[in-house]
Design a protein around this nucleic acid. Structure first.
Length: 361
RNA sequence: GUGGCUGUAGCUCAGUUGGUUAGAGCGCCAGUUUGUGGUACUGGAUGUCGUGGGUUCAACUCCCAUCAGCCACC
């Protein structure tokens, strides 16, 4: 584990800013990582993504495994050569799909069986082949294959069950990961993140963190939040974990992208987060304005509004002077450029927030 | 001029043998989206049923007249 986290300063009582090193360079935290599920951040060139201040992008194991397949990508030199992103890439484990695509999947101790959505054939993802796939994709950071369940309908036993399975799978992941990377130089090894589960049960959460941190993993990921439990419940879990993190490893909150949620996370020890929200919202014409206020650009009130999305914003779209009226029109007629320009704004909105945290106060 | 067809929401049209507050798609308006199966999803507004009469307990539906558009024929 040559990726010790270096703390440069504090954010409140439990937060911090600093950096850690991946095989593709340093990552300054706190940071937000947009999701590029299929290997690219939708509708944006790598240069445009980097231009917003993004350092790391996330790609999805499940989707790339199905299409075009990790072997194809490996043959072409990995995700970096394939998609042109030069910075670090983090791959999700596929575990989230157990949750979000639950109707088509079956969880066993071995792994997760699911139907290929295109061909209909049965496929199995296990902790072992999740590691294999992520390494084939060329990820600089990997996430252990975990078991996440919905919180609303989950019974206590289900939560406990998923919690325990996640830890058993973590051991299999680390074992496989170490086997597959044993011949790499330490500086060439990617970082494996173990995932903390436990639902909304604070004792389970704490226990899970303890177990994950006792494992041979380079990073700590917090999973199973922002899945409908409500902000209060999520904050409770983050607060409970805040004093317990190992200072030497980066902490990654999975799937959170609402600005207020991110602030709370960064102020409670989280270093990095990913989410589809900024880019998905942007493609659906919902942008962040001053004070996190949502701007629905397709609203009639903007029909001839000459102002930029957020006056004073330093994103490419606002600095270039694209008016709300122009963007509204392009959204209305389905022009993809609108989604691109809006994505740039929303990403910059979050990255600027991160940058403001990285200054000593 | 004669004959025929059409006229229902902003647009394209459904509206069964006349029967309760006239529907759809698109558009419009508003909202949702948290480890992306998404140009996705949810909800909402809108009509003097061309106009004027008549028949009937009841007419978008039947009858008459009239206006408008289209087609055919002299």
């Amino acid at each position: 584990m040559g990726n010790k986290f270096t703390t440069l300063g504090k954010i409140g009582k439990y937060g911090r800013f600093g950096y850690f090193t991946t095989r593709r360079g340093k990552v300054y935290t706190p940071t937000f990582m947009p999701d590029g599920t299929r290997g690219v951040v939708k509708s944006l060139l790598p240069e445009q993504v980097a231009g917003t201040g993004v350092q790391v992008i996330l790609a999805n194991t499940y989707h790339l495994h199905l299409q075009p397949g990790e072997k194809v990508i490996k043959k072409l030199g990995g995700l970096h050569a394939f998609g042109g992103w030069k910075g670090p890439i983090l791959t999700d484990s596929g575990g989230f799909q157990v949750f979000s695509l639950g109707k088509f999947t079956k969880v066993t101790e071995e792994g997760v069986m699911f139907k290929h959505p295109i061909t209909g054939e049965k496929r199995l993802i296990t902790p072992e082949n999740s590691m294999q796939i992520q390494l084939d994709l060329g990820a600089d950071m990997l996430v252990a294959f975990d078991h996440l369940i919905g919180l609303d309908e989950a019974s206590k036993e289900d939560v406990k069950d998923a919690f325990e399975r996640t830890h058993r799978w973590l051991e299999r992941c680390t074992k496989e990961f170490n086997l597959l990377t044993k011949d790499m130089k330490p500086s060439d090894r990617p970082i494996l993140f173990g995932v903390v589960q436990g639902g909304l049960d604070l004792e389970l959460r704490k226990k899970s963190l303890e177990i994950v941190q006792a494992n041979d993993v380079g990073g700590i990921a917090i999973g199973g939040l922002s899945v409908g439990e409500g902000q209060k419940a999520m904050f409770k879990v983050l607060s409970a974990l805040a004093p317990l993190y190992d200072p030497g490893r980066p902490r990654f909150l999975l799937g959170v992208g609402e600005p207020a949620d991110l602030r709370f996370a960064y102020e409670h020890g989280i270093d990095m987060a990913d989410c589809v929200l900024p880019t998905r919202n942007a493609r659906h014409s919902t942008l962040w304005g001053k004070g996190d206020k949502k701007v629905h650009l397709t609203n009639a009130q903007y029909i001839s509004d000459p102002k930029v999305i957020m006056p004073g914003c330093d994103c490419f779209t606002c600095v270039s002077g694209y008016s709300r009226a122009f963007l509204r029109h392009q959204f209305k007629v389905g022009e993809p450029l609108a989604g691109s320009l809006a994505s740039i704004h929303n990403l910059r909105y979050l990255e600027r927030m991160c940058e403001q945290y990285r200054v000593a106060k």
